[in-house]
Structure formats: C-alpha cells, structure tokens
C-alpha cells in the first residue's frame, strides 16, 4: 500500500509539474538559456527588494522626517531632530534627565541585560558543553534535553515561567517549605530583572551548548593523547589545549549571543507584561515597538531613528562576527 501511495504521489507531482513547466519552459525559450539564472533569482530578489532593501531606505526616510503620517512622502523633513531628541541628555547615566527618558531607560536596561545574559549564558553553555564532551553515557539525551527549550515559542516560555513564578506558583510553594516568605517575583524590580535573565539563559543555552560542543568535538583526539603522554594536568589540558582551540568558536558564540541579546523582546514582553514592573524590563526593541505601534500616536520618526542606531550597533557586531568566522575557517 505504502509503495502504491508514493507512486501515486509521484505521478501527481509529475502531473502538476508538467503543467507548471509549460509556461516556464516557454519563458526559458523566449529568454534563452543564458538568462535563466535571472529567472530563478527573480522571486527571491523581488522579495528581498520589497521587504528588506526598500524598508532600509524607508527607515532612513522616517528617521529624518517627523509627524505621524505613515507615508514617507507625506512627512515633513526634520533633519536630525529625531536623533537629537533621542540623544539629548544631561546625564546619560540617569535616564530621568534625558529628553527621551524611556529611550535611555531602555538602553540601560538592555545594556545590563546584555552584560548579565551574555556572561551567564556563555558560562552555563561552556560548562555544559565541556561536560557533555567527556565520553558520557547519555550524551545524546542530555544534549536533546538542554536543547528542547530552544524550539519553544517565546510566548509559551513567557507564560510557562510566569505561572511558575506566580504568587501561587511552584517556586513560592518551595520557598514556603523552606520558610521563606512568598514573593510576587515579577512585580519586584530585582527579582523581575533576575528572572528575565534566568529565563533567557534557560531558553537559549541549549543552542550555544550545541555549537560549543560541535567545536569541542572538532578538536583532534590525538592532542589529548599527546597531552596525556606529556603528563599534562587536567588544568593544563583545559587551558593549554581545549580553550585555545575552542577560542574562535567561543568568540563567535560571544558575538552571536550579543547580537541576539541586544534584540531581546518576545519572551521578556510576555513574561513581564510589557516590560514591567514599571519600566524595569523595558528594552530597546520594546521602545521601538511602542513608539511605532504602541499607541495610535505613531512616532515613526523616533522609532526609526532608534532602529537606525540599533542597526549600526548590530552591524558593527555582525562585521566582527564575520571577521571571526572567516578566521575560524582559516584555522
């Protein structure tokens, strides 16, 4: 039966394709084989053009225009006013003194988030990868286990954790068992920030573990054998062989992690009910989102100016990453 079904499917596909073929082959004959690659590229390039390159152009357009009109051509030109508004500040370390205090709050929140998240994720992923790299029984199982959250949606993760951290949730039950008074974790600034980082580590560490593990497994085994013959201690083996050889991978992971951390939004938004408590977990993407779409007053100029600034940072990070990736390949 199964064979029959697949044969039928094959026939079906063939039938459909032989119909699809007719106009395409006609076009091919019309254009000549030389130009066929352009035909194959066209859909992709059109989509890229409309949804990536055009928006980049519009983005710059928005950033230098004001008003709330959606169409760039209908917006008054304001030069660098949007940037000026974003960047004018008496004391950058105190967002309250800035004209766009929300923006600076978001910047600082993002800054701290990136710092803690990068360090924590990197450490956890590295330790896990090193452990999994030892010839462990059940490596496949644990690798899969740590990887599982990576596949979940940020909304699901936000909700699951929100429930876990609820006033009546499991964590508080555990606290009570220990005799600690219960907390409303997500309404207390310190706890809320802590858990945004923790959830982010929980969410993504499996991915970085996987990459680091692949890097570790690419280190030739005979190096370890040579080190063992040379009577190198474990500490020396780690610092003299494993980490240096993993170095390029670590750098790539670091940059990747930074690029992604800067763009924190989805899971934090769900977990903290939109950046709460107050603006304690309001990050830069959230700022852009809220400026542009948060209310009927669409401050597209400010949002785009902030996007452009973030884009520059991300671009710089990406260029560093590409550099490193190329170096890694050379090694």
């Amino acid at each position: 039966m199964a064979i029959k079904a697949s044969a039928v499917l094959e026939r079906l596909v063939e039938g459909v394709m032989s119909l699809v073929e007719i106009p395409i082959n006609a076009l091919e004959r019309l254009m000549g084989r030389k130009r066929v690659p352009y035909l194959f590229l066209a859909p992709n390039l059109v989509l890229f053009g409309i949804f990536t390159f055009l928006p980049i152009a519009i983005s710059v357009g928005y950033a230098v225009t004001g008003g709330t009109n959606l169409f760039v051509t209908d917006r008054p030109f304001v030069g660098l006013d949007n940037f000026r508004q974003l960047l004018s500040c008496q004391d950058y370390s105190r967002p309250g003194t800035c004209q766009e205090s929300l923006f600076w709050t978001a910047i600082w929140n993002t800054f701290w988030f990136v710092g803690f998240n990068v360090v924590a994720t990197l450490l956890v992923a590295l330790v896990t990868a090193l452990i999994l790299n030892r010839a462990m029984v059940g490596r496949g199982f644990f690798r899969a286990m740590f990887f599982y959250p990576v596949l979940l949606s940020p909304v699901v993760i936000g909700l699951i954790w929100k429930w876990f951290l609820d006033r009546n949730g499991l964590l508080n039950a555990f606290f009570e068992m220990m005799g600690v008074p219960p907390h409303v974790f997500l309404l207390e600034v310190g706890w809320a920030r802590f858990f945004v980082v923790l959830v982010s580590v929980w969410f993504h560490m499996g991915f970085y573990t996987l990459i680091l593990l692949a890097g570790l497994q690419a280190i030739p085994k005979d190096l370890y054998e040579a080190a063992a013959i040379d009577a190198a201690s474990r500490r020396r083996t780690l610092f003299a062989i494993t980490l240096p050889l993993l170095g390029p991978n670590l750098l790539v992971v670091l940059i990747l992690l930074m690029i992604r951390s800067v763009q924190i939004f989805d899971e934090a938004w769900v977990l903290t009910n939109g950046g709460g408590p107050g603006t304690a977990n309001s990050f830069i993407v959230q700022y852009i989102y809220q400026m542009a779409f948060g209310s009927d007053l669409r401050l597209l100029g400010l949002a785009s100016a902030a996007s452009v600034l973030m884009g520059v940072v991300l671009l710089a990070l990406t260029l560093v990453q590409l550099r490193l990736a190329r170096k890694t390949e050379e090694i």
Partner: peptide
C-alpha cells in the same frame, strides 16, 4: 541581508 534583523526594519516593513 543576514545582517539586517527584522527588529531593525520592522517599522518601515510595516509601512510596506
């Protein structure tokens, strides 16, 4: 375009 994450162009992309 790998370097241009959606978060950077979401505002104008919405306009498109």
């Amino acid at each position: 375009t790998l370097m241009i994450p959606l978060t950077v162009v979401m505002v104008p992309a919405y306009m498109v």
